[in-house]
C-alpha cells in the first residue's frame, strides 16, 4: 500500500512537472546559457531578504539606475514596510521629502510641485515614453518594478534531461531566474564584440590578442550559422553596447556600474559585483514584496497539510483493512 502511495505521489509530481516545464521551456524572454545561478538569501523554501542588502540595493537604484529607470509600482511607504528594506519610517519620510512630486490641480486650477509623502509612488525620471526615448538614443529604459519577474534565464535542456531539471527546480523551489538574469546583464558587459576569423565561410572566434595582431578582423555580436551556407556576422549597431547575457548581445543601456560609483555606508566594499548583486536583490523584493510572508505561511501550510494527509492515510487504511480491493 505504502509503495502504491509513493508511486502515486511520484507519478503525480512527474506529470505536473512535465506539463508545466513545457511552459517554462517555451518562454523566450531572458538570456542564454551564459547566465549562471547566483546564491540569494531569498531563494529556497525558507528564503528571506537581507535588509541591509535591500537598503544598499535601493541606494544603488537611487544613485545610478533612477536617472533612466522608474519603479512606478513602489510607494515610499513600501520602503518601511515589513518584509522589505524596512527603513525606519522617519527615514522613508525624509527620503520622500527629497523628491518633488506633481500634484493638483489646486484652487486656481493649476498643477504644482510639492515634496513627496510616504503614500506617493516613487516618481519616474521621465514624464512619458517619448521623453525617455529621446534622452536614451531612441531606446526605452523599462520600468524596473516588475523586472525581476518579467525575465527568466532560459536554458535549452535537451528533452531527455528536461524532466530532471524541471523536477529539481520545483522541488528546490527555484524562482530566482529574474534576479539571476539582471545580475547576469549587469556583470556581462564587454569592451567590444569578440573578433572572428573567416575560415572559408566558417567564422571562428578569436582572442583579443589575435585582434591586436590583425585589426581588420570582423567583430560580431552574434553569428548565425545555417547548414550549407556561409556564416553571417551580426555587427554591433551604432550606439549599442556588447553584453553576453542580453539576447542578441547588443544592449542600448551603457554599462551602468563601475567600481566605486556608490559609497556604501555599512562598510560593504564598493565593487561592481556587490552593486549588481544588491540592486538585483532589491528588484526581486520590489517585484514580489510579499515573498517572505508567502514562504513563511507556506511552511506552516505544508506542515498542516502533511499532518492531515497522514491522518487521512491511516484512517483510509483502517477502513479498508479486511476489505479485499
Amino acid at each position: 500500500m505504502t509503495r502504491f502511495v509513493l508511486k502515486g505521489l511520484a507519478c503525480l509530481g512527474l506529470v505536473v512537472s512535465l506539463g508545466s516545464g513545457l511552459a517554462t521551456s517555451a518562454s523566450a524572454s531572458g538570456g542564454g546559457d551564459e547566465i549562471s545561478r547566483q546564491h540569494w538569501t531569498f531563494g529556497g523554501l525558507r528564503g528571506h531578504f537581507d535588509r541591509a542588502q535591500l537598503q544598499r540595493g535601493f541606494q544603488v537604484y537611487k544613485e545610478v539606475c533612477s536617472t533612466c529607470h522608474g519603479m512606478k509600482r513602489l510607494s515610499f511607504r513600501n520602503l518601511s514596510e515589513k518584509g522589505g528594506p524596512e527603513f525606519a519610517e522617519d527615514g522613508a519620510k525624509g527620503l520622500a521629502e527629497t523628491y518633488k512630486v506633481s500634484d493638483g490641480p489646486n484652487d486656481q486650477g493649476k498643477m504644482f510641485k510639492r515634496p513627496g509623502r510616504l503614500s506617493d509612488r516613487i516618481p519616474s525620471p521621465f514624464d512619458n515614453e517619448q521623453q525617455a526615448r529621446s534622452a536614451n538614443n531612441g531606446a526605452l529604459p523599462p520600468d524596473l518594478s516588475l523586472m525581476a519577474l518579467a525575465r527568466k534565464v532560459e536554458v535549452d535542456h535537451p528533452f531527455y534531461t528536461l524532466p530532471y531539471h524541471m523536477i529539481k527546480d520545483i522541488v528546490t523551489g527555484y524562482q530566482e531566474g529574474g534576479p539571476d538574469y539582471i545580475y547576469g546583464v549587469l556583470m556581462s558587459y564587454g569592451e567590444n564584440a569578440p573578433p572572428y576569423k573567416d575560415n572559408g565561410g566558417h567564422l571562428a572566434k578569436m582572442t583579443e590578442a589575435d585582434a591586436k595582431a590583425n585589426p581588420a578582423m570582423p567583430r560580431c555580436a552574434t553569428v548565425v550559422s545555417e547548414p550549407g551556407q556561409a556564416d553571417v556576422c551580426n555587427k554591433m549597431s551604432e550606439g549599442m553596447h556588447y553584453n553576453e547575457a542580453f539576447p542578441g548581445h547588443q544592449i542600448a543601456m551603457p554599462a551602468p556600474l563601475r567600481d566605486g560609483v556608490v559609497k556604501y555606508a555599512d562598510g560593504t566594499p564598493g565593487t561592481t559585483e556587490n552593486y549588481a548583486r544588491d540592486v538585483s536583490a532589491f528588484q526581486a523584493w520590489a517585484a514580489d514584496p510579499k515573498l517572505e510572508e508567502r514562504k513563511r505561511l507556506g511552511l506552516m501550510a505544508m506542515l498542516y497539510l502533511l499532518g492531515t494527509t497522514v491522518l487521512l492515510y491511516f484512517a483510509k487504511r483502517r477502513i479498508w483493512s479486511g476489505v479485499p480491493h
Binding site: S20, T24, D169, I170, G173, Q175, K295, L297, G298, M302
Partner: peptide, 8 residues
Amino acid sequence: FIFFVPNY
C-alpha cells in the same frame, strides 16, 4: 506550487 513556485 502556490507557496514556493507560484510563477513556475
